[in-house]
Design a protein around this nucleic acid. Sequence first.
DNA 1: GACTTGTTGACGGT
DNA 2: ACCGTCAACAAGTC
Length: 537
Amino acid sequence: MSSGSGSLMWFRKGLRIHDNPALEYASKGSNFLYPVFVIDPHYMKPDPEAFSPGSSKAGLNRIQFLLESLRDLDLNLKRLGSRLLVLKGEPSEVLIRCLKEWDVKNLCFEYDTEPYYQALDVKVKSYATTAGIEIYSPVSHTLFNPADIIRKNGGKPPLSYQSFLKLAGEPSWASSPLSIALSSLPPVGNIGNCNISEVPTVKELGYEETQQDELSPFRGGETEALKRLRESIENKEWVAKFEKPKGDPSAFLKPATTVLSPYLKFGCLSSRYFYICLKDLYKNVKTHTVPPVSLAGQLLWRDFFYTVAFGTPSFDQMRGNKICKQIPWNDDDELLVAWREARTGFPWIDAIMTQLRKWGWMHHLARHSVACFLTRGDLFVHWEKGRDVFERLLIDSDWAINNGNWLWLSCSSFFYQYNRIYSPISFGKKYDPNGDYIRHFLPVLKGMPKEYIYEPWTAPLSIQNKAKCIIGRDYPKPVVAHDSASKDCRRRMAEAYALNQKMSGMVSAEDLRNLRRKLEEDQEPQVENKRQRKLIG
DNA sequence: GACTTGTTGACGGT
DNA sequence: ACCGTCAACAAGTC
């Protein structure tokens, strides 16, 4: 590194001071440091056409979470004698302009495996290289470098968690201490003619205050992340006994998991620091759970999906994705919208979708429930459509993990037992027989007795009257009958799997069209979707 | 044979 | 009455 000149620290994810190798490198031996975040209008500007308040890419909750994270980062930088320089525009253009304008010898940013950043990095790196600017871009978002794991596996990503674990082993950095604290940072250099602003508020971005009736209860930022982490690992017994599939998806006053995912997504919390804290705790207890169910196992799941996503072309779509089963999903926008707008008539499903819209977060198993319902369980709608809704509305939506889980739940990849279908009625009931979760997120069903709250359409009219909730007027009738719909989904999955096997995965668009036609022809009238909707709704 | 977490109903223990 | 455990259901890919 050349000294006596400036470094530019480009923040994208990794919105933190602790365990931030790029920031540490940028601050060492430089007289000046330019900590930059570029607001991409594409990601932040209000889009009135979108189906929920927010931009064309992100719902308002995640935009809010990001802004809070940036404000916190700015405060933490100020404590160290620096500040965050916020710029607006297409990120690579803005950054290249900064590099031209300022006296920068080092450009530092956290390496990112997502296609969006890969494409951005190509542009920025190519300019920096020709301008003689040194680039430092370390892997610090995940526990492992996905490229290392793929190399170890002979060029292909592992497709099961266990094989991933075997390849991964212990992370190389786990034996030496991480750099957790910085004592000071070099001052910001001359910013010349660049248009620098403070971190904007949602209002300054053009959002009306009344656009959303209930905002997420989770506040963004590194400070909040570390506080949440401390609170989670304070309870050693809880951490030691943590088993993911045993959590209660209906717990909302005190969620059954840590809710650290949004902080990991934006890098407000270092997954490596989290991992070290857990290892430390495990050393000091008699027994503890192990991957895949343990809390450390959850971090490894994250790395697993990052690795597969990085090593799989067209990971985020069905067509052209080698690990994805080709399935003739239906193109029914009416069913998709009912699901998205929490109008399926299944209170468990609609409550989860309402929590998603209001909080931008729901329990892992709740996500399973609604994802299964939309795709292979009941509605047979394309997983890409559901993925888009989650990607927009979740505050923790992460490209690799979100797509990976949709592939999983739709039985398109990783998991293939399509007979195992979550019941939209009984799955929630076993955790929350009283229906408190439903009553909270769907107040219209508040008065429905617990005997009927998971299937309100079965309540006698006198009960509906007493509950002040007439099904079909105050709350919708179910969009499908679960028994027949799930049976039909199984049939379609079996046919699709048979086709994939017959063609050894090389299913063409025409093959799929033919199968879709065949499935429609074979359909018995009483389970035919459109007619059924007319009968029921 | 290994693979993250379905549903229902029976059974036995508390 | 409420819990955990288990088999049956019907069965997938790598």
